[in-house]
Structures are given as C-alpha cells and as structure tokens.
C-alpha cells in the first residue's frame, strides 16, 4: 500500500482498526515483560528501593518531550500541506502529552519526598517539565477555544512551533538558573553510566510506554476523525433543514 493512501482518513480508519488489536496486545506484553524486569532489578546503593520510581518517571519524561516533538513535526503537515490528518495527529497528541507530563511531575514529586525531604524543589529539570506542562495546557486551551477545526489547527501549529523553538531555551535558562539535579546520565557519548541491571528494565519500560503512547495516540486520532465527521454531518443537516436559504 503506498504511503499516500495512509493520508486518506477513511483508509487511516480501516488500517487503525486492523492494527489496534495487535498494538494493544504488544503493549500489554511489553508492560508484562517490563514490570517483571523491574521487579527483578536490584535496589540502588544510595536510593534504595525508591529507584523503582525511576522506571515510570524517566519514560514519562521522555514521552513528555517526545510528544511535543511529534506535534512539532505534525505542524509541517498542517502549515505546509494543510493536511487534515496532520491536524488530527497534533490535536490528539496534546492531551496525551499533558497526561504523561503530569505523570512525570507526580512521580518526580513522590521520588523527591524521600530523596530530598520535600515534595517539590525548584530543581532545574522539574521546573522545566513544569513549564512544559503549562505549555501543553496552553495548546489544549487554544484547541478548545477556536471553533473551526482547521483554523484551530493552524493557530495551534504556530504556537507549537514557537514552543519547540522556545523549549530548549527555557530548559537551558532554567539549568543556568539552578542546577541541583544529577547530570544526564543515560545518553552520554562515553556510554551509559547506569549499571545494566538498572538500564535494561528502564529500556524495557521505555519501549512499553512508547507502545502505549502509539496505541493511545492512534485511538485518539480515530476519535478525532469521527468527531469531525459528526461535525460535518451536523453542519450539512443544519444547511438542509427547512427554512434555510439553500
């Protein structure tokens, strides 16, 4: 099937319907494997068993940033090709991104209480994630304020792009402002500093979270396409109603 066919919403719906059971199965399987590996992971010599919180905290942080990147890529479809499916992808991604950002913040707070002695510290990373969360809420608010879907998509696209430009600056400013957290330790040129017994479960959980995100996003996109159909039909019905000019 050529890739162009995927751009047709009806084909997309058919493909999603076929793919969905497999995706759900794969997600459940990945979580089962990941959680078993997490259960077997040793405690950290400093942080004890609380290191188990990391296995949800870090994947949700990755998704929080990744979903904004996904929305930024979708904006090219919106602004350059004016493709409705790109609008749908961007709109469906925003609440999911906000949810994972919230999960990252909540687990970070629950991890911070035993480690730092307080639920919230104005640490650089937590603070930038909080700003990211506020920006997700802003995008959602914009989507919910503009009535016409394609105009809402273009407004949200501009905001998403400005955010994508600004987020690295915010991250860097906040780092400059206050650095208390550990330096990034997974992605390093010299290789991961985390011991493999911790790293492997973390990567397994990251794969599981990624599959979950893809499944939820496709399902939310499907809902969004249906919502637009309902909207179109209601507009047509309103136009055809007796008493109108046409």
């Amino acid at each position: 099937m050529p890739i162009v066919d995927l751009a047709n919403p009806s084909r997309f719906l058919a493909l999603t319907a076929r793919l969905m059971p497999w995706l759900i199965g794969a997600t459940v399987l990945a979580f089962a494997v990941g959680l078993v590996m997490v259960k077997g992971a040793p405690d950290d010599y400093q942080q004890g068993a609380t290191v188990k919180i990391m296995f949800i905290h870090v994947p949700s942080a990755w998704l929080a940033m990744g979903i904004w990147a996904l929305m930024a890529i979708a904006t090219f479809g919106t602004l350059v090709w004016r493709h409705p499916l790109a609008d749908v992808a961007a709109k469906a991604a925003a609440p999911i991104g906000a949810a994972f950002t919230a999960l990252c913040l909540i687990t970070g707070m629950l991890w911070g209480r035993p480690m730092w002695g307080t639920y919230w510290v104005w640490d650089a990373r937590l603070t930038s994630v909080l700003v990211l969360f506020l920006m997700y809420l802003g995008v959602i608010a914009l989507w919910r304020t503009v009535e016409d879907p394609s105009r809402a998509a273009r407004a949200a696209a501009i905001l998403t792009l400005v955010g994508a430009l600004n987020l690295p600056i915010i991250k860097w400013s906040v780092d400059w402002w206050n650095t208390l957290h550990q330096p990034a330790s997974v992605v390093r040129l010299a290789g991961p500093a985390i011991h493999p017994t911790i790293l492997m479960p973390l990567l397994a959980m990251a794969v599981a979270f990624l599959l979950l995100m893809v499944t939820l996003h496709l399902a939310a996109m499907r809902n969004e396409i249906l919502r637009r159909r309902v909207r179109t039909l209601m507009l047509m019905q309103a136009q055809a109603a007796p008493g109108s000019a046409s």
Partner: peptide, 14 residues
C-alpha cells in the same frame, strides 16, 4: 524498604 508508600503511590498514579 522504608519508602514503600511513595513507590506504591507512584505506580498507583501511573
């Protein structure tokens, strides 16, 4: 360990 409530809380939140 001593912080079980926070770990369970995190997974419950997830």
């Amino acid at each position: 360990g001593p912080h079980a409530a926070f770990i369970v809380g995190s997974y419950a939140a997830a």
